[in-house]
Amino acid sequence: MIDVGREGRPYLRIGHRGAATLAPENTLDSFRAAIDVGVDMIEFDVLDLKGGPLVLAHSDNLDEVSHGAASGRVRSKSLEALRELAPNLPTFDEALAFFVDEAPEIGLHVDLKLNTRFDELGAALRRHGLEERTVISGFHAPSLRAVARAAPHARLGITYPEDRLSISRKPYLWPIVSLGLSGMRASVGLRLPRIARRVGATAVMLEHRLVTESSVAKCHAAGLPVLTWTVDEPEDLKRVVSAGVDGVITNDPRIFVATLTA
């Protein structure tokens, strides 16, 4: 099973949707950009198409998947129609083949954007021999329990807190969100281990503003490595690493070299 703890390294360097700052997110080009900068693991999102394959997409919002070329919904379109708008859109199978053929040493962090077809997801991981190199994360408890049955050799991570509306990508809402997170910070170290136990998770994916030495220590005491998202500012990187996190997820993996060797 992939090691998401700190043994042998200070922390895991994880590219968010590949390297979303350097290339279009959730594409193989973005994966290659992340690997060129030296990541240990790549995080990417998996969405289901109605009547089509599993694909890499963060949401059902066509604007995101087409990188601004079109608006509308993703799930209802065929793969062929989507690729007219987003030619570089990979299927889940194509992404897995990439990790076998081009990135045999890189870990996979699959973030669920679906609540069905988990048997298909698990079967694909086994078919490519990648189940034990994979961490699967989400916030929906029934989905995580289903994933545990479908891919028992993959590691499960609980994402906290839920960001269903992608608020983390809307800077104008950050001041309001920060106030809410401040109120959660004191209790997160006690709450997270209980949530993880309920869903069978063995790692936690914690929003970086909730990372403190205390919250990380309480998760570690419960045997839970902490991966934190999404860290793009140098001061935030220094803070979460000092707090003892086991992995850092970033849109721009260049931050690791630029900040921690400065």
Rank of each mutant, 00 (worst) to 15 (best):
M1G: 09
M1D: 04
M1F: 05
I2A: 14
D3T: 14
G5D: 03
G8W: 08
Y11K: 04
R13N: 09
I14G: 06
G18W: 00
G18E: 04
A20Q: 12
A23M: 05
A23C: 08
P24W: 05
E25A: 12
E25C: 06
N26R: 15
N26K: 13
T27Y: 03
T27C: 07
A33K: 02
I35M: 07
I35F: 00
D36N: 03
V37A: 09
G38L: 00
V39A: 01
V46C: 12
V46Y: 04
L49H: 05
L49Y: 05
L49Q: 08
P53L: 11
P53R: 07
P53N: 09
L54R: 06
L56F: 01
H58M: 02
S59V: 05
S59W: 07
L62E: 10
E64H: 11
V65Y: 02
A70P: 07
S71F: 09
G72E: 12
G72M: 06
S76R: 15
K77L: 15
K77M: 15
S78Y: 10
L79F: 10
A81F: 07
R83E: 05
E84Q: 15
P87K: 11
P90S: 12
A97D: 10
F98D: 05
F99P: 10
D101E: 15
D101W: 06
E105A: 11
I106V: 10
L108W: 11
H109F: 09
V110E: 03
L112F: 09
L112G: 12
L112T: 06
K113Q: 10
R117N: 12
F118Q: 06
F118R: 08
F118M: 05
D119C: 08
A124F: 07
R126H: 14
E132R: 14
V135T: 14
I136L: 03
S137D: 04
H140P: 00
S143E: 02
A146N: 12
V147E: 01
V147R: 01
V147P: 06
R149I: 00
A150I: 00
G157Q: 07
G157H: 08
Y160P: 14
E162F: 06
R164K: 13
L165C: 05
S166M: 13
S166T: 08
I167W: 08
R169L: 10
P171G: 12
L173M: 15
W174L: 14
S178C: 04
L179T: 10
L181F: 12
G183I: 06
S187P: 06
V188D: 13
G189M: 05
L190T: 12
R191P: 00
R191K: 11
R198W: 00
A201T: 12
A201G: 06
A201F: 05
T202N: 06
A203F: 01
M205R: 15
M205Y: 15
V211D: 13
S214A: 14
V216R: 14
V216F: 03
K218T: 09
A221D: 12
G223T: 06
G223A: 08
L227D: 02
W229K: 03
T230H: 11
T230Y: 11
E233L: 13
E233D: 10
K238H: 04
R239C: 03
R239I: 07
V240T: 13
S242I: 02
S242R: 15
S242N: 11
A243F: 05
G244I: 02
V248T: 10
D252M: 04
D252F: 07
P253T: 03
R254W: 01
I255H: 00
T259P: 00
L260H: 01
L260E: 13
T261K: 05
